[in-house]
Design a protein around this nucleic acid. Structure first.
Lengths: 345, 345
DNA sequence: GTGAAAGCGCTAACAA
DNA sequence: TTGTTAGCGCTTTCAC
């Protein structure tokens, strides 16, 4: 197949009998106006030659690349692709970005990955904006954010805000409140022995959810029993081990609040295999409200996070920053979460 | 903050006391050699100035963009983000691409989306390669593939090969065989009435899985009973309706082969809510082997697809095409699938 | 082994 | 309203 010669600006200008400037003005609707006649001729030439502008030449000249990086710095470096948690976030962002003609460059990173490669990306001039999903609290994230700040590229954090000194806007949600609601609900149902299957402590969400759990207990004058708090990461084997551990207590829990739906579902299966009835013998609540939560039996009572909206909002913020050029004041949007009562508690 | 002036080639050359050509030779390790002394000075200058090459200028000049588009043309346009099915594929690709210094631009498309926008992307010169995930069989995909072919950008299809006329390599797997294995296993277990919950008929996978089911029946001399085949899309409500329909037959099935794990799991839940025991009262087999499959109780017997390997292989093929410049012969890799016996059948 | 310089395709300032 | 042209930052040919 003939790698047909690229059609350029020049070709269009020549065929239309105008200068390249006019071609540019027509394509970009500005910054100068053009006569309807010239405009018409240019458009026809474009169609006839099947001309498509070269994005890189344009980017080089105009410093607009129409590319947004989504940097996801999570445990395994591919979480962004593989969890039902990030799926709605990405979907929400993608909808906004695509509608505005922006492309998404997904950049997964390991939690402990060297920053050299991401710096190459950041400094390569190919990004108009950045959405960065952090899971750790400052100062663990400072190094990366400093790299980003140094580029002056508009950036929004999701899930975990960066340290205030960087001045990045953030879209997050209220983990403490969600955990509080879940625990309070169990308390109101009469449970006094409530176990907690915690998430990986490097994650802000894990810490805040634990915190909300403790606060609710405190407000209801139920002392925190550390033996009821099962350490863990986010993995399902952990959840199963945690269940085993909690059940082996002399005074085992009558309810379990798990730090994620995934943990909750794994716990459910473990309990089921031990012939516990849910919620009669033991109640279970999760966190996240992933799609699967209402699919299983019994459907999982959990804390709903507006994940799609988080993605959408983050995209809007970045696009706003890109378009307004002005350094808008940084803002942190904390979206509300809400307990969804289903069958498991 | 001062949007610090960009550091360029020139600055490095000046500081190092060499020409810009030498800077380029050092950075790219060629195409000319440089004296160790000059090289040393350039490297020091780069470090001192914290210089990072501009990707777009380089791309404009050298026609290398280090960007691969992953085009996913599926039902809802965000499937690529939200299904456990594509997750390992993307993970496998991402691992390869990242290791080779390529960035991934994810481009989700609706099945019936106008091609104008994707053409803009394809013709914008920003892509070194393309991986396209198709779900429909030709000729439904011809228009898009023709657009891609016209750009001469290296491209590999995954899941569904394009029409041979386009000459694209493909990485796929054997749906017919998988369905055959699943059905045969049920037959060998003594089941004669085997229901099938089919997927959306626009999807090649749905058609081939149905086909494999029928072939196995034929080989075992069990006549196909169309009432045992429940039409549907890929959604969970469909699965539940299908179960209801199958159970209402005068001679209901003793086993169900679902066209996906998602359908199988929804069917399981539906059966459980009707107090059927799995697999004693009714056996269930899925297809895909998504992560969840072994998490539920009973763990799902299903057909394992080497999804990660598919992503990996596709990435390797594209990178090979990019590097070798030569038009390699198109190849279609059909990866084997295999029945995984767990608890549900 | 190195420097000078052309030019990738585009935008926009300047001039008319 | 339009044409001319300087560059954006880089790679690579040509000349030394």
């Amino acid at each position: 197949m003939t790698p047909k010669k690229r059609v350029t600006h020049q070709d269009v200008a020549r065929l239309a009998g105008v200068s390249t400037a006019v071609v540019s003005y027509v394509i970009n609707n500005g910054p100068r106006s053009t006569s309807p006649k010239a405009r018409e001729r240019v458009l026809r030439a474009i169609k006839e030659l099947d001309y498509h502008p070269n994005a890189f030449a344009r980017a080089l000249r105009a410093n607009r690349t129409n590319t947004i990086a989504v940097i996801d710095k999570d445990h395994y470096g591919h979480t962004v692709f593989s969890t039902p948690y990030t799926a709605p976030i990405l979907t929400g962002m993608a909808a906004q970005f695509k509608a505005q003609g922006y492309y998404i460059l997904v950049y997964p990173m390991n939690l402990d990955e060297d920053l050299h490669d991401v710096e190459t990306l950041l400094r390569s001039g190919r990004l108009d904006g950045i959405v960065v999903r952090l899971v750790e609290e400052p100062p663990a994230t400072n190094e990366l954010l400093e790299l980003i700040r140094a580029t002056s590229i508009p950036c929004v954090c999701i899930e975990v805000p960066g340290a205030p000194q960087f001045g990045f806007s953030a879209v997050t949600y209220d983990n403490v409140s969600g955990a509080y609601q879940a625990t309070r609900y169990l308390l109101q149902q009469g449970h006094q022995r409530i176990g907690h299957i915690a998430g990986d402590r490097r994650y802000m969400t894990a810490l805040h959810r634990l915190e909300g759990y403790k606060r609710a207990l405190a407000d209801y004058h139920v002392p925190v029993d550390e033996r009821l708090i099962a350490e863990g990461d986010w993995s399902t084997p952990t959840a199963q081990a945690s269940v085993a551990q909690l059940l082996s207590l002399a005074d085992p829990p009558t309810a379990i609040f798990a730090a994620s739906d995934r943990l909750a579902i794994a716990a459910l299966e473990e309990l089921r295999s031990r012939h516990y009835r849910i919620p009669e013998d033991i109640a279970v609540i999760g966190f996240d409200d992933i799609e699967l939560a209402h699919l299983i039996a019994p459907p999982l009572t959990t804390v709903h996070i507006p994940l799609y909206e988080i993605g959408q909002r983050a995209a809007e913020l970045v696009l706003g920053m890109i378009q307004s050029e002005q350094g808008e004041a940084a803002r942190t949007d904390v979206l509300p979460v809400e307990l969804v009562r289903r069958g498991s508690a």
